[in-house]
């Protein structure tokens, strides 16, 4: 197995790593960068379109694509040859398709840690909120639990370390920050991240026709709303309505 490259580097050619005999990791880099993500999503789209026999499913993450496969149907060498052929073509990822604007209530009741984030960063609470709500995030991946969206694009001023010890379960539909990244959650879970605010939107709703709201690669912004607006939108979202605003991007 080749030596790790310098952190942050985008590899000239993808690395192929084994996750057992039924999963192949195609790694394009080691950091969170739009260019790496574009390559991951480009390969993901091509593999999905190709429908290779023996390929069970693909999982795009920040910097790699995990290809789950049946080695009794397609062997690793054949799979790698296909991936290399796809990777040699010009990228097909055409940038984000949509921008989602998620209402977000930063009041202390929901943004429990805004005060602590302000203390850690030396910023005012107002500045913490305005930096977060002013940022344009990119959805890099889903992970951890159904509908948990992992975002990049957090302003560097808000790059606080994660908690040293996880806190008890947070309420559902929170936006959290930690380690220079942001997440939008669905289920109530214990977390090592900091609670920034709560959105009425459901990133995952199994009853909805589109169970998962956003696509990996989409842009995402947060729009501050007050407590009353949050409660009213939350009731509508609970009834099945999509309360986030979707803007088409060219």
């Amino acid at each position: 197995m080749s030596k790790p490259l310098i952190e942050g580097a985008i590899y000239d050619a993808p690395r192929f790593l084994n996750s057992g005999e039924t999963a192949l990791v195609v790694e394009f880099g080691r950091s969170v960068e739009p260019e790496i993500s574009d390559r991951v999503l480009s390969l993901d789209a091509a593999m999905t379109a190709l429908k290779l026999p023996g390929v069970r499913e693909t999982v795009p993450t920040y910097r790699s694509l995990m290809i789950h496969y049946d080695p009794l149907v397609i062997d690793r060498a054949t799979l790698i040859a296909q991936v290399e052929e796809i990777a040699s073509r010009p990228g097909t990822a055409g940038g984000p398709a949509s921008r989602w604007v998620l209402p977000c209530c930063y009041d202390p009741e929901y943004g429990e840690d805004v005060g602590e984030i302000a203390r850690m960063t030396g910023l005012s609470e107002e500045k913490v909120v305005s930096l977060h709500s002013g940022a344009t995030f990119r959805v890099y991946m889903y992970g951890f639990a159904p509908g948990f969206c992992y975002l990049g694009g957090l302003p560097p001023e808000l790059a606080v370390s994660r908690r040293t010890r996880p806190r008890p379960p947070h309420p559902p539909n929170m936006t959290l920050i930690g380690g220079g990244l942001a997440i939008v959650t669905t289920f109530s879970m214990p977390t090592g991240w900091w609670l920034m605010g709560r959105t009425p939107e459901r990133m995952f709703s199994p009853q909805r026709e589109k169970a998962f709201l956003v696509a990996v690669g989409d842009e995402l912004k947060f729009e501050p709303v007050d407590r009353d607006t949050f409660l009213s939108l939350d009731a509508r979202a609970a009834a099945g309505e999509v309360v986030a605003r979707r803007e088409a991007l060219s």
Partner: peptide, 8 residues
């Protein structure tokens, strides 16, 4: 590490 996929 930057999060990536986990196999069974």
């Amino acid at each position: 590490i930057v999060s990536d996929g986990i196999a069974h």
